[in-house]
Amino acid sequence: MSPKSRLYWIVCYGILALYGAFTLLPILYLAVSSFKTQQQIYDGIAATFWFTPTLDSYRFIFETKPILQMLTNTLIVSVGSTVFSLFFGTIAAYGLARYNFRGRDDLAFYILSIRMFPPIVAALPIFMIFNGLNLLDTKTGLIIAYTTFNLPFVVWMMTGFIKAVPVQLEEAAMVDGQSHLGAIWDILVPVLRPSIFAVAIFCIIFSWNEFLFALILTKSQAKTLPVAIPEFITWTEVGWNYVAAAGMVLVAPVLVFSFLAQRYMVRGMSMGAIKD
């Protein structure tokens, strides 16, 4: 290796290391803090990584709040909205990708623009509508709200993915004896599987982490974990160790899931980028 290329790699790895530290240190700090007492949190920089770990914070949060129920709510709402978004979003994307009709591009942009406006703008109308429909503090309500925001993303992404699959595959299946719907189900969906999986992961992560709508639309029954975390900061104390422990409970499943699924995320996102 020439000195020039060695320097190049040193710079590359240096930048990557800095970026890694920038993104991973907060999570490490969160994990470390979750094993501390409240006193140890304030012990200063030197004690950041040198302390006697304890599970007290975890014990406290599980005893004082229905963490498991909220975690279950988070899971149901995330998976539910992802399934609905993918189902309806993929059907809409198929129409946009495969049929040429007047106003198609405008419609596609309009769908994407829903994703562009700040969610807080829609929060009040959605609250009023849900109040009228008795959907407040229900998982169904939250699933509908999240689906609204996941749909444009799914439609936009899946339109691109479907366009990248030659329509002749479906036509070949139809000539082979399959119906149109059968050709989509039998041929297109399996070909799109990595893309569908990648989009699903992004939808789940969005719904899993969502805070604003969960705060406004839920109270107790359908409350999700992100809303419960700030409740450890009260008028009388700021329980950073409890916030950290609850944060870890929320983050850990996503971390594990993303780690296992990263192969599909990369494959799905790069699909169609290279012409066969």
Binding site: P166, Q168, L169, A172, A173, V175, D176, I187, V191
Partner: peptide
């Protein structure tokens, strides 16, 4: 039966 330009193999 039809043979396509890009073969359209599954």
């Amino acid at each position: 039966a039809m043979v396509f330009q890009n073969y359209a193999l599954y």
